[in-house]
């Protein structure tokens, strides 16, 4: 069966797609902020990785902790400095703010880096593969899948099992009431945005290692991330990984059947899920 490699590669790609949506799922599921600048954050992280790499010459994988930490700080500051002030009855206000932010970041990156196509250089890593009986599996995609899965597991443990996670879930339920137990919800929101940015930045660097990017490629990544979140189910932290796998497999199978299709088949899957199961795979909350 020569379809097995296609499906395996689709799953490997899907792990990255899932991670692209994880930060968005966290922010959207908890703060109900649709961060339109999500795609630009992904690309920005890739460019930041590129700059660090030119500076240090290290493999991008080794730069991940630094990138994640810096983007945690960016997310925290963005939430405290801007978005927290815009929260209120109207969800459109923070949405418009992130829309403005996305335009600004896109053009800033365009100014700084030009329209050239970039890629993060990870040496010989992209060319190493494992020979299994039925398929050749790339080592880089395997590493990316491992990092992605680990991110999902760690986030689920932090949100589900720790005292901090309990406060995050309570704040998501009712940010008025948590104040009565001494919780500063603005700070929780800022920490959550920081974590989301860190996860998104990790996804951005991994994406930059696997494929090319330009200052203007944020939009397609954002669409993919939104598809991951919606197919996975709003409010679920596991759904996005499953959705990523589904989108990755559909993407590669689609490309094989129809090489010029681009992202048509993943988009069709998105459309189909909206028709058949609008709450997504694991959507529990019907808000």
């Amino acid at each position: 069966m020569d379809w097995i490699p296609t499906i395996l590669n689709g799953l490997l790609l899907g792990g990255l797609y899932g991670l692209l949506g994880l930060g968005l799922a966290l922010v959207f599921g908890i703060m109900r902020i649709a961060n339109i600048a999500h795609g630009e954050i992904i690309v920005m992280a890739a460019f930041f990785g590129l700059m660090l790499q030119r500076l240090t010459g290290l493999n991008p994988l080794l730069l991940l902790p630094v990138v994640a930490l810096v983007f945690f700080g960016l997310g925290y500051v963005l939430q405290i400095g801007l978005l927290n002030r815009l929260l209120g009855e109207d969800p459109l206000v923070p949405l418009l703010a992130t829309f403005g932010l996305s335009t600004m970041l896109r053009n800033l990156m365009g100014q700084g880096f030009g329209a050239d196509i970039h890629r993060l250089n990870s040496g010989r890593l992209p060319f190493i593969s494992l020979h299994m009986g039925f398929a050749n599996i790339g080592v880089l995609p395997l590493i990316i899948l491992a990092i992605s899965t680990a991110s999902f597991v760690v986030l689920a443990l932090v949100i589900g099992r720790t005292g901090f996670g309990r406060m995050v879930r309570a704040t998501a339920d009712n940010f008025h009431v948590v104040q009565m137990q001494g919780v500063n919800y603005s700070r929780i929101y800022a920490l959550v945005m920081g974590i989301a940015f860190a996860l998104t930045a990790i996804a951005g660097v991994l994406l930059g290692m696997r494929t090319t990017f330009t200052p203007y490629s944020g939009v397609e990544h954002m669409l993919l991330a939104f598809e991951v979140v919606v197919i996975g189910g709003l409010g679920s932290l596991w759904g996005p990984l499953l959705a990523g796998f589904a989108l990755g497999v559909v993407h590669l199978v689609g490309l094989r059947l129809d090489p010029d299709s681009g992202l048509l088949y993943p988009d069709l899957l998105f459309f189909l899920v909206l028709l058949v199961r609008p709450q997504g795979f694991a959507g529990l909350r019907q808000t």
């Binding site: 406060m167 879930r169 309570a170 339920d173 137990q181 001494g182 919780v183």
Partner: peptide, 18 residues
């Protein structure tokens, strides 16, 4: 105003956050 996503004990433990 209990938190629907939290268990009974988790709701109680929110008091400890103060």
């Amino acid at each position: 105003c209990l938190y629907p996503s939290l268990s009974v004990e988790e709701n109680l433990k929110m008091g400890l956050a103060a």
